[in-house]
Design a protein around this nucleic acid. Sequence first.
DNA 1: TATATTTGTGTATTATAATAAACAATAAAA
DNA 2: TTTTATTGTTTATTATAATACACAAATATA
Lengths: 87, 87
Amino acid sequence: MIDAVTIKDVKLQLGELCKQKRQSYEMSQEDLAEALDISRYTIQKFENGKNATLDTVLKIANHFDLLNNLYQALKDIEKSNDINSLY
Amino acid sequence: MIDAVTIKDVKLQLGELCKQKRQSYEMSQEDLAEALDISRYTIQKFENGKNATLDTVLKIANHFDLLNNLYQALKDIEKSNDINSLY
DNA sequence: TATATTTGTGTATTATAATAAACAATAAAA
DNA sequence: TTTTATTGTTTATTATAATACACAAATATA
């Protein structure tokens, strides 16, 4: 039970993932901001684990082709709930 | 290729999932809002697919014990990126 | 080394998410 | 049907995410 993932942990990890994906595409924060038509400062804050809006997070996820995965994951959670309700 | 999941799709699905989880615990929007110390209006808007902040989404996810899953999923994506970079 | 690029920070302003309160519209229970 | 609870919606206010701009600090490149 090395559990207890906090909200802060998730936000930091989201930022890390953004940074890693961005760098794998050899994009600067400026490049990504331009591509998504949002400010570099928003990217900057997000990559450093600060709070953000869902729209910002999903724009970034979309740009790195993670939207389908996310959507499917949500559907799976929903489905697993349905299954549990049968027992 | 019945692809093309949109940002709106994901937001709607997030709202649906919140509603389903909440109802599976037999909580009203008011109950959930109280438990998370946020306003019912914020829950209301989120469940109907409106934009929200990451903090709001993660508070809700945390209440339904989805934070570990989410964190692990993010780690997995990060790791799959590392693997690709080896080829 | 110097130069260019990228990232981190600061300040002020704008846009909007969150809040609070009330009330109407449904839905569920008596 | 009447209550009762829940959900949807409106308005006004507050809190804060997002923007724009500049500049310093750190990295990378010539």
